[in-house]
Every structure is written in C-alpha cells, then in structure tokens.
C-alpha cells in the first residue's frame, strides 16, 4: 500500500440549468487500496467539514453490477482500464502527483442533473417500448420443456450482461445507444422464448432510441471498447440483421 497526493479537476454543475465548470481540488494521502469512489468519499468528507458542497455522483452497489456509477475519467468512460465500472477502479492505477479529470456522461439523451449525475431514464423508456418477452405471470411451461443449446444460451447471456450504465453512449461520438439496444435485442432473439416478437421488438426499440435523442451508430466500436461488461460488436451486427429481416418481412406482409 502506498499513499498518493492528487490533483483533481471535477465538473461542478448545480443543476440542469446551470452552465457548469471545472473546479480544482488537491487531495492528500489517498491509499492505493481505495476505489476511486472511496477517494471521492474522502474528498466529500473534507469538503463538508470545510463547509463546502460535496460533489454529487451516482453510485449504489459499488461492486460493478447495478450500473449506477459512471464517471468520465481522464477522457474515458469508467476510466483507463477495460471491462470495469467506475466503482471497480482502484487508486493503485494512478500515480502520485497525477491530475485526474472527472466529468459526467455527456450526451443529448442523458441531461446532466448535478455535478457528475445524469438522467438515464431514456433507457427505461427504450426497454418499456419492447425490451421484454410478453408473457404474463403463471401458465409458463416447464423450464426444461424447450432445450436451449448451450452455445446459444451462453451467447444470449453474454449480451444479457448489460448493466445499463450508459458508458457506450458516453463513449460514442454520436452519443448513440446502439450497443445498449442491440444487447437486449440480441439477448432475446438468441433464445426461443424471444423469437415470436423479434420483428416488433427491433422496430419498437430503435424508434424509441431515436425519439430519445440518441444518435446513429458510428461503426467506430468505441462503445464496445468502453463497455464494462465487454459486450461485443457482434450484437450490433445482429441487430442490423434483425432490422433487415424485420423490414423484409414487413414488406411481404
């Protein structure tokens, strides 16, 4: 364990109307065993004691699964490492004396609420538009009635691991939500249970994505590179196939 002294540049914005600005803070004796959120806890304790307003940031489970946290750290969604969320980034990955820049996700679809917090409710509306299998409770057949090949199942689960953090949107030049939407489409269409609604689903979710102000896919793969769950570009390719398939079928009908 070592101790670090750091220089922070933190985005401060009182609310959605405020313009916002970077504010500089110096912080001492940060243990390399701390997570970056624990470092922010220490900063906030200090600010409160000094009578200054603490930095607002989203967080909950602090173990990389709830999808709450999300800070743009030194120009990267969830920081410099691959396949982790902000809460899983430990201070041992920073150097003594380093400057760390902390910003909120920046995207039209994610308005800033305060400091490092944004509104990601657009994701909920995209799911409500079609990100489900329309079955009611009760009356489900036995779980083993339809065998699912292990390979398909594993692929579906790879896509289903999306935590809805929004890093894909933050990383994208067009602030597209393509990886998020594709992950859900891919998860469900790879399973027999998701097939009956496949055409309806892909249209509904993409329409909602556009309505929410997310841009089009850039094909630059920044989303997948920054995804804390490592969701692969394959899901976007699959969404395109699904969209094409659905369009052709719609014309036929």
């Amino acid at each position: 364990m070592a101790l670090l002294n750091l220089h922070l540049k933190v985005w401060r914005q009182k609310n959605n109307e405020d313009e916002g600005r970077f504010v500089d803070y110096n912080i001492q004796d940060i243990s390399t065993e701390m997570s970056i959120l624990e470092m922010l806890d220490v900063l906030n304790e200090k600010l409160i004691k000094e009578g200054q307003e603490p930095v607002a940031f989203e967080h909950d489970c602090r173990e990389g699964i709830c999808g709450c946290c999300g800070i743009f750290i030194n120009g990267r969604a969830h920081g410099p490492l691959k396949r982790i969320t902000t809460c899983q980034l430990y201070m041992r990955h920073f150097k003594d004396g380093e400057t760390i820049v902390l910003e909120p996700w920046r995207a039209k679809g994610f308005p800033v609420l305060k400091d490092l917090m944004v509104d990601r409710s657009a994701f909920d509306r995209i799911i409500a538009a079609g990100g489900f299998v329309a079955v009611n409770t009760g009356g489900a057949p036995d779980a083993n009635a339809v065998p699912i090949p292990k390979h398909n199942l594993e692929k579906a689960l790879d896509a289903a691991e999306c935590i809805g953090c929004g890093a894909c949107v933050a990383a994208c030049k067009n602030a597209s939500a393509m990886l998020f939407v594709s992950a859900k489409v891919s998860h469900l269409v790879r399973l027999p249970q998701g097939k009956p609604e496949r055409e309806k689903r892909v249209f509904a979710m993409l329409n909602q994505m556009e309505k929410e102000g997310f841009g089009s896919c850039t094909n630059t793969e920044a989303c997948s590179a920054e995804c804390p769950k490592g969701i692969s570009m394959d899901v976007i390719a699959q969404l395109r196939r699904e969209y094409f398939r659905a369009s052709v079928r719609q014309e036929k009908e």
């Binding site: 057949p141 036995d142 065998p147 199942l153 249970q193």
Partner: peptide, 19 residues
C-alpha cells in the same frame, strides 16, 4: 424457474440444452 425461463432469463444449461 418456469416463469423466469419463459421471460428469457438465461439460466446455465448443459450441452444437451437442459438446465
């Protein structure tokens, strides 16, 4: 378990496709 599988919850399976 039946309900969750019907919703598309991807529980682990064996090579034969069963849970």
């Amino acid at each position: 378990i039946d309900q969750c599988v019907a919703q598309g919850v991807p529980f682990a399976r064996e090579y034969g496709g069963l849970l």
